[in-house]
């Protein structure tokens, strides 16, 4: 008897909740869902996420503090080697930089994106499913709005897609659905940079590069273009690692490596200037 009753009521609840879901989907796809609904969830979740994240970071710091001497010696040696490498790289970059400065002037890019006003934020939660979105602990109250650009370590990591009162959702440039209008900082060729989703957190792909004269080469720097609607010009995306001509021989595509560590993003900067 009892079992039968509970089966009927399960179907009844299912029916009501399916209707509720359909209603929610309809409302939110039309942008009619009141903002307070998301905020309500955020008030419970984000303080807890913030707490856990800071405890985890603190623990990680302690562990690295007590790391034994040997690993520090090893690390020191590695770092020295790396310094030598970087010094060499720096010389090359210096040369490239002079060239870039000229090109920037040519393309009317903002010389220093360091001058944009920024808000520092912590990454407190990540979407562990198909999408590369994460939650930061700053929101409308801190001057954040949708479409603002998000940087980490001097490179573009994404844009704000939803700003709530005290937190925001950021879509990473590694997301499948992320398309960034970019350009080769060395040659000025335009292209589109797309994320690879969960397939890769260290590389992005680019396509439709208008490189008919074949000047672009592996190692070139890709930055956000001056024709993007959302992204401010000249923000670093990464360096070309693969380049091949498309079948039409007019455009080319390939891959680029990102400079940031997307799997361990902790601190980000949100540029509070919107592209006009």
């Amino acid at each position: 008897m009892k079992k039968n009753r509970s089966r009927i009521s399960a179907k009844y609840i299912l029916f009501i909740l399916v209707l509720l879901c359909v209603l929610l989907i309809a409302l939110s796809s039309q942008g009619l869902l009141p903002r307070q609904v998301r905020d309500l969830a955020g008030y419970v979740i984000t303080p807890a996420q913030k707490g856990i994240t800071s405890v985890l970071q603190w623990t990680e710091d302690r562990f690295s503090f007590f790391r034994d001497k040997k690993s520090l010696i090893d690390e020191n040696r590695e770092l020295k080697e790396k310094v030598a490498q970087l010094e060499e790289q720096n010389r090359d970059l210096q040369a490239a930089n002079d060239q870039t400065a000229q090109l920037r002037e040519l393309y009317d890019l903002d010389r220093e994106y360091d001058s944009y006003p920024k808000v520092a934020a912590n990454v407190i939660g990540r979407d562990s499913s198909w999408f590369e979105t994460f939650i930061i602990d700053k929101g409308i109250a801190d001057g954040i709005q949708a479409d603002m650009n998000v940087l980490a370590g001097g490179a573009l990591v994404g844009k704000v897609i939803q700003a709530e009162e005290t937190w925001s959702q950021v879509r990473s440039v590694t997301d499948d659905a992320s398309n960034v209008s970019a350009m080769n900082a060395e040659t000025g060729d335009y292209c589109v940079v797309t994320g690879e989703g969960s397939r890769s957190h260290t590389t992005l792909t680019f396509s439709q590069m208008t490189d008919s004269d074949g000047n672009s080469k592996v190692g070139d720097r890709l930055v956000t273009s001056n024709i993007s609607d959302v992204y401010l010009p000249g923000l670093l995306l990464g360096y070309i690692t693969e380049l091949h001509a498309d079948e039409d021989n007019v455009t080319s595509s390939g891959a680029l490596s990102v400079s940031g560590d997307f799997e361990h993003l902790q601190n980000v900067m949100v540029i509070t200037t919107l592209k006009e």
Binding site: A10, L17, A41
Partner: peptide, 25 residues
Amino acid sequence: GSATGLVLGFFSGLLWDLMFGSIVG
């Protein structure tokens, strides 16, 4: 049973939608 399963599923999914999803529901 199903009644518990669907109610818990609804709230779990809803929380995910609210925090990460673009379309709630």
